[in-house]
Design a protein around this nucleic acid. Structure first.
Lengths: 325, 325
DNA sequence: CTGTTAGCGCCTTCAT
DNA sequence: ATGAAGGCGCTAACAG
């Protein structure tokens, strides 16, 4: 294994000069900097992260925090894609991605604080958020850098990266009404009614109102709940001719129900997340990609900039979603 | 921040004694060991991983490698759940989970080798495998410890953790035929036809043959392919009265198609992975849980034991899947 | 059973 | 613009 000493010797300079040169310290002349860097490259020098972290007092690690849950959360492909995006930028920064994941909020918090105390991790990306999240509270209190992917808590000025979910709701509604000719669309969300679902509903309603189209809305009960209610709902709303759902699986589930009640008809379905990579019989199915990989990448970039409380809001990033034509 | 020096001083011993005591080294008397450990606990001492890793020459990190892919892979909840299982055992071992993920095999390999070279990671869990996987080749060659979750490559004696997929196929078929009374079941797999799908098909066929039931099988084309073929297939197989699919989403997609062709009938569906946490109208839908979290946990345990090429095969772990009644 | 000592590889004052 | 030297926190020979 080749260390900074080796390259210092071979270059005929001191270790400290080599260190500075490799870290692009302007105190070293551009000439020797290049000389040493290319020598290092030629020798296949790779810095030892542990040694680096020890002296710096910070590990070159970004902690990625998953929402606490016993079983897999919905909207799953989102997380994997986001991780890929995060890792893409971490790699080029010579950083490593570590994850904190657990069943309960306490598990995750313990995981995170272990990273902080033992591994000296100082930057985090949260893949979720809700009010009074103990992990966010902890990070805030500890003065550590973190960025939220998704809807941030309203009572803090945390930095975040998100889509404009009102606009996403508008886009889905516009497509459903204008292109797929739905005159009586229904908006379907989960029983949890996440903030992003509320925003998309808002967008949906705005467009429908502007078009003079009546709106309907309902929520899909959880898997363990009786589903008769959906059937009832559908029977009391016989004219529904378009579905906008907050997630592909929710949409699909609702669509199934619809099909059951209206065996010989068809209804267009628009939803979000591109989580179904399989052919669906309904040719009028459209999933809006929210580009989670881009969200992840942007969050990772952001986590290397310092938190600014300025009015400029330069650390609140809104990214576009897929455009439908 | 309190270091090992502090506790050594307060305990009135040398740093090395403190170090040994904290690491449960038998060379230190049980008495002082307990004394020092409780002192450390009282003082809230946490070891610095970076310093530890530097001297040990190995980071207390396990690298978790995702299959290379541009977008989210199918069977997604599997990965998240597996990570949770892995992290559960890593936490109690004072280890941290880092992930390697990327679009191409080269990306992932670069990621892994950076972990190895720079971060001194020496243990890995692969969440996939196929023949001639460059990552596995690299790890094998470098003599690093790794465990595969899932079907291992046949041409090596890598350690792995997996379900018995033939048995899983049998279980699904048994349930479908005996309990749900399917007399003309169809086995549906993906267009990729992964090894685990082949195994489940084999189990399916064995049971069907034993029951004297005719078997049918087909594959679902990819999302971008024309799906007319499924309709054709269904029309030429009008008597299908049960579906066994290798994944919930595949099953659901196929079921949709079936429903389209047979609008007023019902058909039972059995598939794997518990990836749909939503109510489905079809009361005869049954998803077999493969317990990915347990697979992950077992893999993490295994990665701390050394690879044995002995005939005992103690490092090939087969875990049970959900039992249907 | 315990202490002394010498690093692990790197960064960073402090000199020059 | 570059060197020398100390130290980050911990482990592991080597002594005793």
């Amino acid at each position: 294994m080749i260390t900074i000493r080796d390259i210092a010797n071979q270059a005929g300079v001191s270790v400290s000069t080599a260190s500075r040169a490799l870290n692009d310290n302007p105190r070293i002349s551009a000439a020797t900097r290049r000389r040493i860097q290319s020598l290092a490259a030629r020798l296949g020098y790779v810095p030892n992260y542990n040694a680096k972290s020890l002296t710096r007092g910070e590990a070159n690690v970004v902690g990625v925090v998953f929402p606490p849950s016993q079983s897999s959360t919905q909207g799953n492909p989102f997380f994997i894609d986001a991780m890929r995006g995060i890792n893409r930028v971490l790699t080029q920064r010579q950083y490593v991605l570590s994850v904190a994941i657990g069943e309960t909020s306490d598990d995750v918090l313990a995981n995170v604080s272990a990273m902080v105390d033992q591994a000296k991790v100082k930057r985090f990306v949260l893949l979720y958020s809700h009010e009074d999240d103990p992990v966010a509270d902890y990070l805030r209190l500890a003065g550590l850098r973190f960025v939220i992917v998704g809807q941030p808590s309203v009572s803090h000025d945390d930095d975040y990266v998100d889509n404009d979910n009102v606009a996403a709701g508008e886009a889905g509604a516009t497509y459903l009404i204008d292109k797929l000719h739905a005159n009586r669309p229904v908006f379907v969300s989960s029983a949890v009614d996440w903030p992003y679902e509320q925003n998309r509903r808002q967008g949906f309603k705005q467009v429908a109102t502007k078009r003079g189209v009546p709106t309907a809305e309902t929520q899909l009960p959880r898997a363990d709940a009786p589903i008769a209610s959906i059937t009832e709902w559908l029977e009391s709303h016989p004219n529904i001719d378009g579905i906008l759902a907050t997630d592909d699986l929710i949409g699909l589930s609702f669509y199934q129900r619809w099909q059951h009640v209206h065996p010989d008809a068809q209804v267009p379905l628009v939803s979000y997340n591109r989580s179904i990579s399989l052919p669906l019989p309904n040719v009028n199915f459209h999933s809006i990609d929210l580009y989670p990989e881009r969200l992840g990448a942007a969050a990772a970039e952001l986590v290397f900039r310092k938190h600014s409380t300025e009015a400029g809001h330069e650390n609140r990033i809104i990214l576009p979603f897929e455009q439908l034509n």
